[in-house]
């Protein structure tokens, strides 16, 4: 075992006994070594915000296409694409209810406590995570990212708890279907 991580009393104590501890072990997942792409995405949160707005509009334009094939049938391929694109850019965890535009383009599901409403009280003085000492705190990044965004104030909204039954489903399709439904009801009322 290399140097015990500072700030974690129990693992440090265990390491001091000389017992074997595999490297990079965390209670949540194997710690990743690089967060380069994710951090880059946060630094360019404004671009991603702009891009996503265009992208969502395009997806909504394609609503007749999704409807023609059936949302259930396109779900699998779209989910596949979404998982890999967002997985690469944001280390997406496929919670199925994307909050990226409210969290400065820093995915809150990467927080070991999966906090969706702001940083916990354990953030280290250097801005790193309490649980994963090598990882920059997701919420410190989110705050920075939101400051660059036009609609960065969305970080102040209280997010609902995650609906676990929506895991591994496409957030893009859900948003599109909801927007299309809202547009239809608005059209009917008018």
């Amino acid at each position: 075992m290399a140097d015990p991580k500072p700030g974690n009393a129990a693992p440090a104590k265990k390491a001091a006994t000389g017992a074997y501890t595999p490297a990079g072990v965390s209670p949540n997942r194997r710690a990743r070594h690089k967060y380069t792409v994710r951090l880059w995405a946060v630094r360019h949160s404004r671009f991603f915000e702009w891009f996503y707005n265009r992208f969502a509009a395009a997806f909504l334009l394609l609503h007749p296409v999704w409807k023609l094939f059936g949302y259930e049938r396109v779900e699998r391929p779209i989910t596949f694409v979404e998982r890999h694109v967002k997985g690469f850019l944001f280390d997406c965890r496929m919670c199925g209810q994307c909050a990226l535009s409210s969290t400065g383009m820093s995915c809150p599901m990467n927080c070991p406590k999966q906090l969706r409403n702001g940083p916990c009280g354990g953030v280290r003085a250097n801005g790193n995570c309490e649980v994963e000492p090598d990882m920059p705190c997701v919420w410190v990044q989110a705050w920075k990212g939101s400051q660059n965004m036009v609609n960065g104030n969305a970080i102040m909204n209280v997010q609902k708890p995650v609906n676990q039954s929506l895991r591994e489903t496409s957030s893009w399709l859900r948003v599109t279907a909801e927007a299309a439904a809202a547009r239809e009801t608005a059209g009917r009322d008018a």
Partner: peptide, 26 residues
């Protein structure tokens, strides 16, 4: 929210964190 399980005497426990402090308050 609670401390992470790594801080305590049973770091092998499963962290739940189903709600966070904000959604719990709500």
């Amino acid at each position: 929210t609670g401390d992470g399980v790594q801080a305590g005497d049973q770091p092998g426990a499963k962290p739940v964190f189903d709600l966070d402090c904000m959604s719990l308050l709500e």
